[in-house]
Amino acid sequence: MIYYIVSIIVMLIGLYAVLMKKNLIKIVVGLSLIDSGTHLLLVAIGFIKGGTAPIYSEPGLTADAMVDPVPQALVLTAIVIGVAVTAVALAMVIRIYAQHKTLDIRKIRSLKW
């Protein structure tokens, strides 16, 4: 249960940063935090307390003593995607900074909705 709560808190912190922060880098960090929260939630779904890796490594090990491997595989994929998105976003921040010499979204008129 604690994992679910923590993952939602992490997502909300990220959402707060995306919506309220004025610095472009902090907004990207917020995006990354939302991603991390989602990843934590995914792993938590497959988690079993005291469970081991899903490999039949010792005799007598049954499937219900193992954690669910599918969410872990999903999270690996999602992490890679998250890194790619963050990289592209930061690349654009660099371009915006090179042009406007500022990271403050209040000073960049074309970023207003």
Partner: peptide, 17 residues
């Protein structure tokens, strides 16, 4: 152009989340 791209990333990655 980069600003439009940044806006798109911001909302697009929320979509994927």
């Amino acid at each position: 152009k980069a600003e439009a791209g940044f806006k798109y990333i911001l909302i697009g990655s929320l979509a994927s989340t």
